[in-house]
Design a protein around this nucleic acid. Structure first.
Lengths: 338, 338
DNA sequence: AGCCGTGGCTAGAACGTTGTAGGGCCTGGG
DNA sequence: CCCAGGCCCTACAACGTTCTAGCCACGGCT
């Protein structure tokens, strides 16, 4: 329905010419602010429509001092991040902020991702599971509000905000669930140096100690993927006595465990119980049916957005660290030991 | 390491003042083009470094006519899209183009996503599995190069480029694999009106006919998720005689089938064979171990990027439709019928 | 000696918007 | 009759870049 374009994209001036008014007036009309008569307003709108005019966000932001842009760095490989991003959109737009996405991928490191966001004039940064050194994050936070989601940082050492799940508490509730079922030989497959991993390890140790199982504490190196879980499972198979329950770093790791157990003819949960972390789609799949610790994703992204917006608008920032409670979801991979 | 900022972000002019040169020269140095002496170049770079200057991408694009921006619309819910996006980054950056991401989410429809990309001055659009009416896409394609990935459109009816997997061929190879194993009662669980679904249905019918199995053609309504697959499986259970093999619309659907079969004590592949589509992470997971049709993701995204760049640079566009061959990956869910 | 080319630099005008200051015109009150 | 105060509207200057001219000094040709 657009008129024959002269090859260039229509500008305010084009609309102005067609409607016989000044560009300033067109700007006023396009923004919907007051300052134009009804008749003219309609005429301008019609002209804009006819030539297919669209405001140029870049020029617009260049002029206005605020950009109202929130930069989000996320990883394409982590399904969890997709869910968080969805939450960010939902929280940011009603507050009048736009979201700029910048993905971390194999061919594109965090540095690149953040640089792109800064070059784009984002007013604040929301980083999902950033791996960059704390010093680098601190440096960034000197320039603009920054919040790290899911990666814990020593509080008060820098201005970086932190939003995270209470990882330790999550694992603790998993262990407590197993203990209540009667388990004593409970192993933890950890996540190495992944965000949250050390907290989960600590939660495991604390819970074991608290139940007088200090002698049974056993942490095996794991990781974030099915392969890591599978490797850990193979190690477990050679262990005597074999533990009666395993708390894995995350769902993918847990699925790796399940797989090896299944193939080795070890019944879950009859012979061994398995707990994951995340409550990903994977866990919910009926034939996986994994008992797991769910993170409160909407709350996490909402808190992250809330934090940076509060900083931007000079409101008192309640706390520099927001800890969101996880929730144990009991499904079919845990049962009393034989 | 940045100097005490006066609250505003440093600009070319700030660097220029500090280095005692003109803004134009700083611009030249920052872009690394020729036109500056070595000594001055170094001095400018040092000044920029000291005050923490970063070019403003928006101002930069405003001035230059080309924006070198490729807009990508993708869905956060489809893991498949994440993989494609990764491929787009890999293909676009070496060619000198930047990627702008715009996600479709529950709270953010395609219209919003595309509007954001256009407002951002993208020169071309890459749409993953767009659901918008063909007419709307055609309209867009009048304004700038547009390519639809994974959604087929009637060719030559509009300027929209199409990059897709040969869905029909993929399903055909799946059926042929099953026929070669000795199956005759092969059912297809379809994807309704999802992108690619009708081609897959057609591929199934063609292959069945070609092997003289026209009488055994049977298509059950399915969908894209595990739930759809599970529902279809329950329908199948009530069927007599029960088919010996199922070709599902995609992996998630196939996993739903597997789940119900597993719970109902129907052995896969002994009693029934299952084939998926996509070769997602899901399929590769050892304990799912799904025979499936793999899409060539790197090639898909590379073709999409190549297509729009060719259009942008006025090169002859080889074809309006690029069809990428799929590849059958035989794993553990298919075997000869009993 | 005159001329041209070249390397290093700068002034100033774009790019498409929004904000500020103000200019007409009308209306109503003194 | 004059002025204050609204309304509509416009001119012009930003915003941070890049691009086009063009200036100057120097050196190598004819």
């Amino acid at each position: 329905m657009s008129t024959a374009s002269n090859g260039k994209r229509p500008t305010l001036a084009d609309v102005a010419a067609r409607a016989g008014v000044s560009t300033a007036l067109v700007s006023i009309v396009m923004r919907g602010v007051k300052g134009a008569g009804d008749a003219t307003r309609e005429r301008v709108l019609k002209a804009a429509q006819e030539i297919g005019y669209r405001p140029d966000a870049r020029a617009r932001l260049l002029r206005s001092h605020r950009s109202q842009l929130l930069g989000v760095q996320f990883s394409l490989e982590q399904a969890f991040h997709s869910d968080l991003v969805e939450g960010v959109y939902a929280a940011a737009e009603p507050a009048g902020y736009q979201v700029v996405l910048s993905a971390v991928a194999a061919s594109r490191g965090e540095q690149r991702a953040v640089d792109a966001l800064l070059a784009d004039r984002c007013e604040a940064l929301i980083l999902f599971g950033p791996q960059a050194p704390a010093a680098r994050l601190a440096e960034l936070a000197e320039q603009l509000p920054v919040v790290s989601v899911a990666r814990r940082l020593r509080p008060s050492t820098s201005r970086v905000g932190v939003v995270r799940t209470a990882d330790d508490e999550g694992v603790r509730s998993a262990v407590e669930h197993l203990v209540a079922l009667g388990h004593r030989e409970i192993v933890h497959i950890d996540g190495g140096k992944a965000p949250g991993a050390s907290d989960r390890r600590r939660g495991y140790r604390t819970a074991m100690n608290r139940h007088g199982l200090a002698d049974h504490v056993r942490v095996l190196p794991g990781g974030l993927t099915e392969e890591h879980g599978a490797a850990a499972a193979r190690t477990l198979l050679d262990t005597h006595p074999r533990p009666s329950a395993v708390v894995a770093f995350n769902d993918r790791c847990a699925v790796g465990l399940l797989d090896v157990f299944l193939r080795s003819g070890i019944a879950v949960p009859d012979e061994i119980s398995v707990v994951g972390f995340d409550d990903s789609h994977l866990a919910r799949m009926a034939h996986v049916n994994l008992t797991t610790v769910a993170q409160d994703i909407p709350r996490l992204s909402e808190s992250a957005v809330g934090h940076v917006i509060a900083r931007l608008e000079g409101k008192p920032v309640d706390e520099k660290e927001t800890v969101v409670a996880p929730r144990l979801v009991v499904r079919g991979t845990t049962a009393a030991p034989r």
